[in-house]
Every structure is written in structure tokens, then in C-alpha cells.
């Protein structure tokens, strides 16, 4: 931290010109100095742009993710029925990443729109987990007593669950329920069900961390001061406590996004997540595995895999950098 915290005070009336840097300001300075962090940040930004600009990019390419090309000039009709012919399997000017086997849809368009779905699911489920975890953890730590016991037991329970098994069984149920809702249009059902399931199962660990932090913050004199002028519980938690755990929450959130990207991919791969015709990176992996396409068309498997690996790696490295940068004990300045 800054030198202003040292015991010797300068003469009064001459305020020290310690540059007014906030926590985030200092963290940003540190991130900027790390090459790995900057490269990962750039990749993350590029991936987000890729997803956001999917309609624009595919328009430039002149393709869309749903148009099928099953003509005999595109897909093999004899030896390996459905396999793209050599000119269509790999990148070309017409199809930037080639076409997929079976339906002959444009891979680039599906990857771009799939990025939208994958990133939205990861982001929204992370937000759900972060809100649940922060609020419940802060409430447990702040109120203590019965509220704390109830929330703590709930945390234990959620951490003890075999997540994957539970998610595998809940996701299909949720999807069939959502299908009947009036909102069920487009990719609403798969996205919502995955966001709910992943968000709902991801909060417990964060809640435990936040609870621990709040337990020590609660003992600080400034909380007592706030109580002494009649601060309400709500503003105590929102204004006095949560800003002090924001760093921890931010680190956890950046670590959680890649976890959720992977989780979406895994669930869709296992067939309980995003389903054709909605593209997502997991759905594409699933498609590559179905009918053993990847044996004769490894490129079809490689495209979503590489996108996934690069993105998850970039997010994880960025998360590490954010954690180091926000750590007041870190030696780097």
C-alpha cells in the first residue's frame, strides 16, 4: 500500500501528495506491467468482440449459422456420406473455417454465434453465482447467529453435492419445464437453463470466502462507527462492507468465468446443455463426437476445441494476474 500509512505524521496543514490511487488504480498499474496479463487481456477482449460482432463478421463473410449446404458439390455422397469434400472441409475464401459435416453449415458462423452463447452463459451464470455468494456470505458474516448457521449449513450442503451428477439430472428437467413457458423462443431455453443451473451451483464457495472476510471486517472500528450513527443493516452491508470484499469477489469472478465456459462445454457435450440448432462451443464439440465425424474430419473437432482452450487459458491467466495485482501483500508494485 502507500507510504501514507506509516506512523510518523507530517506537519499538519501540509497534506501529503501521495498520488490519489484507489485499489483498482493500483491493480491496473500492476496488470499493465505484466506481459502475460496484457496478452491474456487482449485475447479476452478479442473473444468478446468476436462474439459481439458475430452478425457483422458473418455478414462480411456472406454466410449464416443456420443455412445448410447439403448439395453433392459440398458434401460427399458416396464413400463417407455427409463428409465435406476437400474444398469445403478447410478454410477457404467462401467459408472462412470450412463447413461442418452432415448439414454443411458454415463453421465460422457457427463458431462466432456459438461464442455468443458460450460467453453469455458463462457471464450470466457467474453473475448469478457472484450475487448469491456475495449477498449470502455477507449476510451470514454480518448478522451471525441463526442466520449464519442456516446459511453456513446451506454452503456445506452445496459444497458437498456431487455437482456434475446433479446438474446432469436437473438440466433436462429444467429445460422441459422452460419449453412450455411463453418465453420459449430461440436460444432462450438452453441459455436460461444453463445459467440457472451453473449459477445456482457455483455460489457456495464464494459465499464461504466472503463470510470469512466479513467476519473480520465486522470487528473493525469503522463498522462500530457506522452503527453509532444509526446506519441501517442494508446500507451497512452494501456501502460499508461489500466495497471491502469487492477485490476478493472480482478475483473469484474472473476465475469463475473460465470454469463456467468449460462447464457449459461439458454439459452441452454430454447432451444436456445447448442443443442443435443453437450453436455453442459445447454443442459443436457434441456434434463432432456424434456419428464419429471427428475420425474423418478432425478439423471439425479442432475448431471449437482451440477456441475453448485459448479463451479459458486467457481468462485463467488474467484471473491470476488480477489476484496478484489486488493482493496488498504482493511485492510487485
Amino acid at each position: 500500500m502507500s507510504t501514507a500509512a506509516t506512523a510518523t505524521a507530517p506537519p499538519e496543514g501540509a497534506p501529503k501528495l501521495v498520488t490519489g490511487r484507489s485499489l483498482l488504480g493500483t491493480a491496473w498499474m500492476r496488470i499493465r506491467r505484466s506481459k502475460i496479463a496484457m496478452v491474456s487481456l487482449a485475447i479476452v477482449i478479442l473473444m468478446v468482440l468476436f462474439a459481439l460482432l458475430a452478425p457483422v463478421l458473418t455478414a462480411i463473410e456472406g454466410q449464416n449459422p443456420d443455412a445448410t449446404n447439403t448439395g453433392p458439390d459440398v458434401l460427399d455422397a458416396f464413400e463417407n456420406p455427409g463428409l465435406p469434400l476437400p474444398g469445403y472441409m478447410f478454410p477457404s475464401a467462401e467459408h472462412w473455417l470450412g463447413v461442418e459435416p452432415g448439414l454443411g453449415r458454415d463453421l465460422f458462423a457457427r463458431l462466432a454465434y456459438g461464442a455468443q452463447v458460450s460467453l453469455i452463459i458463462a457471464l450470466l451464470s457467474t453473475i448469478v453465482s457472484v450475487i448469491l455468494g456475495t449477498v449470502l456470505g455477507a449476510a451470514a458474516g454480518y448478522f451471525g447467529g441463526k442466520i449464519d448457521s442456516v446459511i453456513s449449513r446451506l454452503i456445506d450442503l452445496f459444497l458437498a453435492f456431487p455437482h456434475l451428477l446433479l446438474v446432469l439430472s436437473i438440466a433436462p428437467i429444467l429445460q422441459s419445464r422452460l419449453k412450455d413457458s411463453p418465453l420459449a423462443q430461440g436460444s432462450f431455453v438452453p441459455i436460461t437453463s444453463l445459467v440457472v443451473v451453473l449459477g445456482f451451483f457455483g455460489w457456495a464457495y464464494l459465499a464461504r470466502i466472503v463470510r470469512g472476510q466479513v467476519l473480520s471486517i465486522r470487528e473493525q472500528e469503522y463498522i462500530e462507527a457506522a452503527r453509532s450513527f444509526g446506519t441501517s443493516h442494508l446500507s451497512m452491508i452494501l456501502k460499508q462492507i461489500i466495497p471491502n470484499v469487492a477485490g476478493v469477489v472480482l478475483v473469484y469472478a474472473t476465475m469463475m468465468i473460465p470454469t463456467n465456459i468449460t462447464a457449459e462445454a461439458a454439459l452441452s457435450f454430454l447432451g444436456v446443455g445447448v442443443k442443435d440448432p443453437t450453436p455453442s462451443w459445447g454443442q459443436m464439440l457434441n456434434a463432432a463426437q456424434q456419428g464419429n465425424w471427428y475420425l474423418n474430419d478432425p478439423w471439425f473437432l479442432a475448431v471449437p476445441s482451440i477456441a475453448l482452450i485459448i479463451t479459458v487459458l486467457a481468462f485463467n491467466l488474467l484471473g491470476d494476474a488480477v489476484r496478484d495485482a489486488l493482493d496488498p501483500k504482493s511485492s510487485r508494485n
Binding site: 502507500s2 501514507a4 500509512a5 505524521a9 499538519e12 497534506p15 501529503k16 490519489g20
Partner: peptide
């Protein structure tokens, strides 16, 4: 607009 750590004890 500054934060407490930017001040001396007396301030």
C-alpha cells in the same frame, strides 16, 4: 474525493 490512507494520522 480522496481515500483515508492518503492522509496523516492527524488529518
Amino acid at each position: 474525493n480522496r481515500f483515508p490512507h492518503e492522509f496523516s494520522g492527524g488529518q
